[in-house]
């Protein structure tokens, strides 16, 4: 039997909104560690890794490891039926091919349950080694989303370049070119407004903006985003999930031939 209960159900709604456009079907892995997912987009260019640790839930029971294959669009449809203040419980019994989502209003006067069919999904689980990154940028997530959105009206790709001057986001297209430079700014009133750049080596990498824009769907989850880059490695764009885990997006760079 598997059961988890999350009082702040809106977190789960936001998590689904953050991954459903990138991935159609995915296996959720349930273990004593927590509720996790690793899935690639259909073109194998981007990967999303989600971890919600068991300690982060008000109740978490996982008698044995379980993989639940779900269609994310359908799961998002069901979670949309939960109110933002609702408590969400996810339940699956051993040997059944369904999962139940239960939503309780804060005052307990409305309780709904939605049952969804599970799927068998053949998924390739990639081994992602721990890496030391040459440059790590921490910045306000809304600022990063704004930059990706603005640059996608200029071009299809973004060049991200980290030097000791700061981080430069550049795009070029038929109508012209754009450069946005963010400098380190640690002297802000609120830590969530800070931009911190840790650089061992200067790095310049090029990425498809379509994917970056899709990653920024996670912006409502966290005030800050962390972008980790090394030459010729996929970038990691990470959003923390309220002290209980993270969503990490990996994106392969474009290489000039």
């Amino acid at each position: 039997m598997f059961e988890l209960r999350l009082v702040q159900g809106s977190l789960l709604k936001k998590v689904l909104e953050s991954i459903k456009d990138l991935v159609n079907d995915a296996n959720f892995d349930c273990s004593s560690t927590g509720f996790s997912l690793q899935a690639m987009d259909s073109s194998h260019v981007a990967l999303v890794a989600l971890l919600l640790r068991s300690e982060g839930f008000e109740h978490y029971r996982c008698d044995r490891n379980l993989t639940m294959g779900m269609n994310l669009a359908n799961m998002a449809k069901m979670l949309k039926c939960a109110g933002n203040d609702d408590i969400i419980t996810i339940k699956a019994d051993d040997g059944t091919d369904t999962v139940t989502f239960m939503f309780e209003s804060p005052s307990q006067d409305k309780i709904s349950d939605f049952e969804m069919k599970l799927m068998d999904i053949d998924s390739e689980h990639l081994g992602i080694p721990e890496a030391e990154y040459e440059a790590i940028i921490r910045m306000p997530s809304a600022e990063f989303a704004r930059i990706c959105r603005d640059l996608s009206s200029i071009g299809d790709t973004v060049v991200i370049s980290v030097t000791k001057e700061g981080v430069r986001f550049s795009a070029r297209g038929d109508i012209g070119a754009a450069n946005i430079v963010c400098r380190q700014n640690a002297t802000v009133d609120k830590p969530e407004d800070a931009t911190i750049i840790e650089m061992q080596e200067p790095v310049t990498l090029t990425f498809a903006l379509r994917y970056m824009n899709s990653f920024t769907k996670a912006t409502p989850l966290a005030e800050q985003v962390t972008i980790s880059m090394s030459s010729d490695l996929p970038v990691v764009v990470e959003y923390k999930v309220a002290g209980m885990g993270y969503i990490r997006y990996y994106l392969a760079p474009k290489i000039e031939e």
């Binding site: 260019v45 390739e124 081994g127 392969a252 474009k254």
Partner: peptide, 14 residues
């Protein structure tokens, strides 16, 4: 010409 690489060039399949 820009070539879009895929993730399996960087990460291993089990």
């Amino acid at each position: 010409l820009w070539l879009q690489r895929i993730l399996v060039l960087y990460f291993s399949l089990p």
